[in-house]
Simulated scan of single mutants.
Amino acid sequence: MHVIVNAAMSADGKLSTRERVQHAISGPDDFERVDRLRTECDAVVVGVGTVLADDPSLTVKSSTRRDERVETGQPANPARVVADSRARTPTDASVVNDDAETYLLVSENAPADRRAELASNDARLVTAGAERVDLLVAFAALQEAGLETVLVEGGGELIFSLFECGLVDELYTFVGPTVIGGRDAPTLADGDGFVDSFPELSLDRVEELDEGVLIRWTLRR
């Protein structure tokens, strides 16, 4: 499996405001880039916090690109994957509609009634871990299901956990021309933070985009 983390952040490294409200960081060129990137992937992954805050669809926006996927024998949209330890994804969330296949990564601690409700919406449940989702086990199950190239779009807690597990292969960060600020505003990698054994990156490319910069990194192994 190849895991790509992609995020847009402000010049001071914030993903959104301290109230978890999205602020326009990137522009049309970056939106187009992300849509192309989704087209090339087998799945798009987010944490449940992103679903609750933004209700994203995680689908390919361009009808031309969807048609191109179908012509090559793929579904029109990549699968959607939500890391959701306690099965908090609403049953009417956009990620569980009929536009694409959906996988929900839940823990054994997730309430049985919530799991049943989500499964009745045709979401595929992957149970891994006792209290929290065991990402190594869950991502292995996704790979067994045929999802080889995976795009992670947030949020900071999930991204940190993926770095912690050693699952990230590439990191794309768009840094936009704005400052959000706030000690409680989410950053690219939240969670507990590292105190040693820091993940190390190799710089691949930097390019100007939408009055900001797109930075592409690979993980050093």
Rank of each mutant, 00 (worst) to 15 (best):
P186L: 13
I159D: 05
V168N: 11
L203Q: 04
L171M: 14
L151W: 03
D192N: 11
L136F: 06
E153T: 03
P199T: 01
E200L: 10
L188W: 07
G191K: 05
E211M: 15
F194Q: 05
G156C: 01
E208A: 15
L171I: 03
F198A: 03
G154S: 01
F160H: 07
G155L: 01
D184M: 13
P177V: 02
G191S: 02
G156A: 01
D204M: 01
D192L: 11
V213Y: 12
G156L: 02
L201T: 00
G176C: 13
A185R: 09
S161Y: 08
E170C: 08
E200Y: 06
L162V: 04
D210H: 11
I159E: 02
G176R: 04
D192R: 11
G146F: 05
L188M: 01
G182Y: 12
R205D: 05
L209C: 08
D196G: 08
S161P: 14
Q143N: 14
V175N: 07
L136H: 14
V179A: 12
I180W: 03
D190G: 00
E200F: 09
L151E: 04
L188R: 02
V195R: 09
V195Y: 11
V152N: 00
D210Q: 12
E144W: 08
E157T: 00
D169M: 06
D190A: 00
G156E: 02
E211I: 14
V168I: 09
E211P: 08
A140L: 14
A141M: 12
L136K: 12
D190N: 03
G191Q: 04
A145Q: 04
V206D: 01
L201K: 00
Y172N: 11
L203F: 00
L162S: 11
L142V: 01
L171W: 07
A138P: 04
V213I: 09
D196Q: 12
